[in-house]
């Protein structure tokens, strides 16, 4: 089938015999091929991550360059590594997406605690809104927003970590704001 040898194969053969220049040329020649595959296969990942994946693939090729059997064609080997590293990239990013929200609590917008409550100084109505939350969240809102307790006190009393407390408050406030809007005529 192969009448002339794949130039990439020639380069990698030389590289594996410790020809550094040939190796650099091999990697430069492989990069656009890899980039093309990554672009075609990673449509669901943001384009700014594509080059990261390309570099992951190059690194994989580099670390495993001794696993190519020079008696076999190069392309299947190359594509197998590229495919494996793209799947690996998905796996890593999939895990990243599912990191617990607590890790991001520092990034949550500072809570304008008063907002859902100020418009309704009517105690009954506030109680009505709080009644629709789960008891724990309701207690967090009561303590922080209505009784002006400090975060440290509340977090100690309810045994919630400060980060978790911010998240709970944030979610409760959002939920109450939504409930409030729904209740308004």
């Amino acid at each position: 089938m192969q009448l002339t040898e794949d130039p990439l194969a020639t380069l990698l053969k030389a590289a594996n015999a410790d020809d550094r220049q040939a190796y650099a040329r091999f990697l430069h020649a492989v990069t656009p091929i890899v980039r093309g595959i990554v672009r075609a296969r990673s449509r669901s990942l943001p384009p700014d991550q594509h080059e990261d994946i390309v570099q992951d693939v190059l690194l994989g090729i580099h670390l495993k360059r001794h696993t190519w059997d020079a008696a076999h064609p190069l392309r299947p080997w190359l594509y197998a590594i590229t495919r494996y590293k793209i799947i690996d990239a998905y796996r890593k990013r999939g895990v990243a997406v599912h990191l617990p929200i607590e890790d991001y609590s520092e990034l949550l917008p500072a809570e304008d605690i008063a907002s859902p409550l100020t418009a309704r100084d009517d105690r009954a109505e506030v109680d009505h809104l709080l009644g629709q939350l789960d008891p724990r969240s309701a207690e967090v809102v009561r303590a922080l927003a209505l009784r002006d307790e400090t975060q440290a006190e509340v977090s100690a009393r309810l045994q919630i970590s400060p980060a978790n407390l911010r998240v709970t408050l944030h979610r409760a406030m959002k939920r109450m704001a939504a409930l409030g809007r729904r209740d308004q005529p």
Binding site: R20, Q21, Y23, A24, H28, E51, V54, L58, H62, H66
Partner: peptide, 13 residues
Amino acid sequence: TDDLIARLSTEAV
């Protein structure tokens, strides 16, 4: 990426 290639190609076989 070019930097990466330059770095990788200096490593021993």
